[in-house]
Design a protein around this nucleic acid. Structure first.
Lengths: 214, 214
DNA sequence: TCGCCTGTTGACTGACCAGTCAATTTTGCC
DNA sequence: GGCAAAATTGACTGGTCAGTCAACAGGCGA
C-alpha cells in the first residue's frame, strides 16, 4: 500500500485497471463489486469513478486495449510472407502466449466479453468479428493460392479455428485441462494440426515436424 | 392466459421452465428478473418458488434436462457401427438440429452455462466434461483403429471439435452469421470437413461427397 | 502566503430484486 | 356438500451495490 500511495497520479488509472483484472477474474464481472476493485487497487471507492464513468467502462477498456493488440498482431502476421499454416500457427501462438503471460486478463476477456453473447459480447460484436474476418481472409487467400483446399467456406474455417483456440483456453480457465509449459506448446501444435491437417488418416507424406507416427 | 389458467397443475412446472427459456434468452440470466419469468408464464411471482427453490435452480434444471439428452445421444451414436467421421457428423448434426429446433434453449445453455466459466459453467463442469470425454473416446478409438492419425491428442481433438460447433452456434446466436436451412446443413459439413479433413490441400483422393473442387 | 486545481476519500442514497409468507382459491376425495 | 391438502397469489422485506457528492489533501504558480 505504501507503494500504491506514493505512485504518481497518472499511474492510478493503470493500477485500477490491473486491479480490475484480478477482481473480475476472481469473482466474475457480475459478482465483483466496485469496492472489490478499489480494495484490490488500494484506492478509495470513489477514485474508480474519477477515472471511469462506470463499472462497465472498466471492462470495456480492458477488452478494447487487448483486443486492438490482437487485431494488430493478426494483421502483421497476415502481412508477412509465410505459408497459411504458419500464419495460423503464429496467431494461435500469440493468443496462447497472451494467456501464459496474463491468464487473468485473458480469462476476463474470454469469459466476460468474447463468450458473453448477451451482455458485453453484444456490445463488442463488431470488434470481435474483425478478428474472425482477418482469419477468414488468410484462409481465403490460401484457398485462392491452392495451399488450402476450398471444401470449407473461409468464414466457417475461421470460426472453427478461433473456436478451437478459445475452447482450449477455456479448458485451462476451467481447470478442466492441465496447463504448463509443455501443454501450451502442445496446444499450439495440436490446434494447427487439427485444423490444417485434419484428423483423417490419409496415407501419403505429412509434414514430419508435427506428426508423430504410430 | 385463459389457456394457462385452466392448464392441469402438473404442467405448470413445464410452463414455467419454457417461459424461463424465453426470458433468459431474451434478457440474459442476470438481467432477467424472476418476475419476468412469471409474467412470461402468465403465473404469479410466488409460483415460481413453489416449483423451484431458486432462480438458479430453474437454470440448472433447464441445463441438466437437455445436457443429459446430449450425453445419451452421443453414447448411442458411439455405440453404432459407423466410421468415426460419421459419428462426429452425427454429433454435430444433433447439436445443430437442437439449435434449429429450439434456438432459445440452446442459447441459454451455451451462453449461460457452457460458456460461463465463472458462474454456472463451474457448477456443471463435470457434466460438461462428460461430453468432451465421450467425444475424445470416439477419437481415441478411431486412432487405435487407424482411421484417424494420432498426431493430435484425443482430448484436444474433442475440444477443437466441440469448440468449432459452439463457435458456429454462437455466431448464429450473436447474429454474426446468417442462419437458415441451407446454412445449418452447410455448417454440419464444414465442421466435420474442417476437423476431419483439415484445411491443407493434400493432392490425392478426398471423399468426393463433401469436397467441392476448384 | 494565498488560492486554485487536480486527485483523493468514503459515507450515503436510491433503485433494484431474490426470496418469504400469510391469505385465498382450486382440487380431489369421502 | 364439506373438508383437507395442494396450488396459487402478490404484497412485502431485507440486503446488496452502483453511482453520487461534499469534503479534504497537497502541489504549484503568483
Amino acid at each position: 500500500m505504501a507503494a500504491a500511495a506514493r505512485t504518481p497520479a497518472a499511474d492510478k488509472r493503470r493500477i485500477i485497471l490491473d486491479a480490475a483484472v484480478v477482481a473480475f477474474a476472481t469473482r466474475g464481472f457480475h459478482a465483483c463489486r466496485v469496492s472489490d476493485i478499489a480494495e484490490e487497487a488500494n484506492v478509495a471507492y470513489g477514485l474508480v469513478y474519477h477515472y471511469f464513468r462506470s463499472k462497465d467502462e472498466v471492462l470495456d477498456t480492458l477488452f478494447l486495449e487487448r483486443w486492438d493488440v490482437l487485431l494488430e498482431v493478426i494483421s502483421e502476421i497476415d502481412g508477412e510472407d509465410l505459408p497459411a499454416r504458419e500464419k495460423l500457427r503464429a496467431i494461435a501462438s500469440f493468443i496462447i502466449e497472451s494467456y501464459r503471460h496474463d491468464p487473468n486478463l485473458m480469462k476476463v476477456i474470454i469469459v466476460e466479453v468474447t463468450r458473453a453473447a448477451n451482455s458485453f459480447g453484444r456490445t463488442h460484436l463488431a470488434k470481435i468479428r474483425e478478428a474472425y474476418a482477418l482469419i477468414a481472409e488468410i484462409v481465403a487467400k490460401a484457398q485462392a493460392a491452392g495451399t488450402f483446399r476450398d471444401a470449407v467456406a473461409p468464414a466457417f474455417a475461421a470460426l472453427a479455428f478461433y473456436g478451437a483456440i478459445e475452447q482450449v483456453l477455456t479448458g485451462w480457465i476451467f481447470d478442466a485441462l492441465p496447463q504448463g509449459e509443455a501443454e501450451f506448446e502442445d496446444a499450439k501444435s495440436f490446434i494447427v494440426e487439427t485444423i490444417c491437417g485434419g484428423l483423417d488418416a490419409v496415407e501419403p507424406f505429412r509434414d514430419p515436424t508435427s506428426a508423430r507416427t504410430v
